[in-house]
Simulated assay, not measured.
Amino acid sequence: MKKTRMVAALGAATLLMTGCSLGDQQPATEVSSGSLGAADTLEGLSVAVGGKEFTEQLVLCELTAQALQSVGAEVERKCGMSGSSTVRSALTSDQIDLYWEYTGTGWITHLGETEPLADPAELYQAVAERDQAENQITWLDPSPANNTYAIATNRENAEKLGVTTISEYAALAKKDPAAASYCAAAEFLARDDGWPGVQEAYGFELPSKNRSEVAAGVVYDSVAKGDPCAFGTVFATDGRIAALDLVQLEDDQQFFTPYNPAVTVRDEVLAEKPELREVLKPIAEALDDATLQSLNGKVDADGETPEQVATDWLTEKGFVAAG
């Protein structure tokens, strides 16, 4: 019964966020300067901060907006844009000035590369160098958090089946395909760095009858209930992993491409105020996997707004002062 109530709460939170996240937003509380810089560090800078429509991006967009406002920038919010291509096009066409992008998305989606790079530092360097040279987009310091694809199951299945790594999942899929039933969104099932690549890298092939194509957001509830699948594709920093007590399998062959978030900014904006880099650097450094999972969970599981979550965290860290 407790898990059922949690699933219902998560669904309601998702609907709520879908309805209220688009368009310009104002911070839940006013913030002033803290450890990120003096109140006039970015005085005279006027920027449009963008972001995608899912929870983590809504939080990151608001964190950035409040941080920049605290040091004197004039900020227009364009949080909640639909899809990676949309927000990237907004950046390259000067409709927004900066937003958080993921190194894996930059490499595969925006730069069109098909060969994954497993080392996070190597990937960041490759993406940053190419995007700056070809598109005049600068990637600021990356976060240690890695919102990559991951495979998860509920705790009961993990303990009953003895599966804690993807190699152990592959062995289960070969031995008992029904017990290894799998849920994923259509995109993951088709991508070379998704399901086809996982099967090739780990040496198994799950029969199609044991796979279910569902919307990405539905996977979490499906895995938590074990219906219609015991395992599924999740994103590593999603707050629902902890909220639903899911177990994330170790990618012991290091197959999945790293997806470290970093602020991407147009070169001309950074040239106008180079201090922007140092203002946002401490925020990037503080965002590890556990922190992002916690921030995302406050929205998805606890029903808080991204604006309030951002204010609370920035204040707790001393990055800004409330009021």
Rank of each mutant, 00 (worst) to 15 (best):
Gln308Ala: 11
Ile96Gly: 02
Ser181Val: 03
Glu268Gly: 04
Val263Pro: 06
Asp141Met: 14
Thr315Asn: 09
Lys273Asp: 01
Ala12Asn: 13
Asp288Tyr: 01
Glu200Lys: 08
Asn147Leu: 09
Phe204His: 07
Ser21Trp: 13
Val49Ala: 01
Thr86Pro: 07
Glu213Gln: 15
Glu56Asn: 11
Leu117Ala: 00
Ala121Pro: 09
Ser33Cys: 12
Cys79Phe: 07
Glu278Gly: 06
Leu189Met: 14
Tyr99Gly: 06
Thr164Arg: 09
Gly19Cys: 14
Ser46Asn: 13
Leu16Ala: 15
Pro228Val: 03
Ala173Ser: 06
Thr315Asp: 11
Ser294His: 12
Tyr99Glu: 12
Leu68Pro: 01
Glu122Ala: 10
Gln254Lys: 11
Ser167Ile: 00
Thr109Val: 12
Gly112Tyr: 00
Tyr124Asp: 11
Glu56Thr: 09
Ser84Cys: 08
Gly303Arg: 00
Val265Asp: 03
Thr109Lys: 11
Ser93Thr: 15
Leu246Trp: 00
Tyr220Met: 11
Thr105Leu: 10
Val31Thr: 14
Asp221Ala: 15
Ala145Thr: 07
Leu60Ser: 06
Gln308Pro: 05
Thr153Ala: 11
Val7Met: 13
Ser143Trp: 07
Phe188Ala: 08
Glu168Val: 01
Gly318Pro: 02
Trp313Asn: 04
Glu205Lys: 09
Thr4Arg: 14
Pro120Leu: 02
Ile151Arg: 05
Thr311Gln: 11
Leu111Lys: 00
Ala179Arg: 09
Tyr149Lys: 12
Val309Leu: 10
Met6Tyr: 09
Glu76Pro: 03
Leu10Trp: 14
Gln136Phe: 03
Gly217Asp: 09
Val127Trp: 01
Asp289Tyr: 04
Gly104Lys: 02
Glu278Phe: 05
Ser294Arg: 13
Ala321Val: 14
Pro261Phe: 06
Ser46Gln: 15
Leu68Val: 00
Ser21Lys: 13
Leu10Arg: 09
Ala118Trp: 03
Ala310Tyr: 08
Asp176Leu: 01
Thr291Arg: 08
Pro177Leu: 04
Val75Phe: 04
Ala133Phe: 06
Ala262Thr: 10
Leu292His: 00
Ala173Val: 04
Ser181Ala: 08
Lys174Gln: 12
Glu115Val: 10
Gly239Pro: 00
Leu91Glu: 00
Lys175Met: 13
Glu62Arg: 12
Gly106Glu: 04
Val299Asn: 01
Ala133Arg: 14
Glu213Trp: 03
Thr153His: 06
Asp141Lys: 15
Val269Cys: 05
Ala284Ile: 11
Gln26Gly: 14
Asp267Cys: 00
Leu244Thr: 03
Phe231Ser: 04
Pro27Phe: 10
Ile166Pro: 03
Glu43Pro: 05
Leu60Lys: 10
Arg240Gly: 09
Asp221Gln: 14
Ala90Ser: 01
Phe319Pro: 06
Glu250Arg: 09
Tyr99Phe: 15
Glu187Gln: 14
Ala12Phe: 11
Asn147Arg: 07
Lys281Trp: 06
Asp267Leu: 02
Gln125Ser: 12
Ile241Phe: 10
Ala262Gln: 08
Val198Leu: 07
Leu111Phe: 00
Gly318Trp: 05
Thr92Gln: 15
Ser33Thr: 10
Leu189Tyr: 13
Gly112Ser: 01
Ala152Arg: 06
Thr92Ser: 15
Ser212Pro: 05
Val214Ser: 03
Gln25Phe: 12
Cys79Gln: 07
Asn296Glu: 02
Thr164Glu: 11
Leu287Gln: 01
Gly203Pro: 01
Val265Glu: 05
Arg5Gly: 14
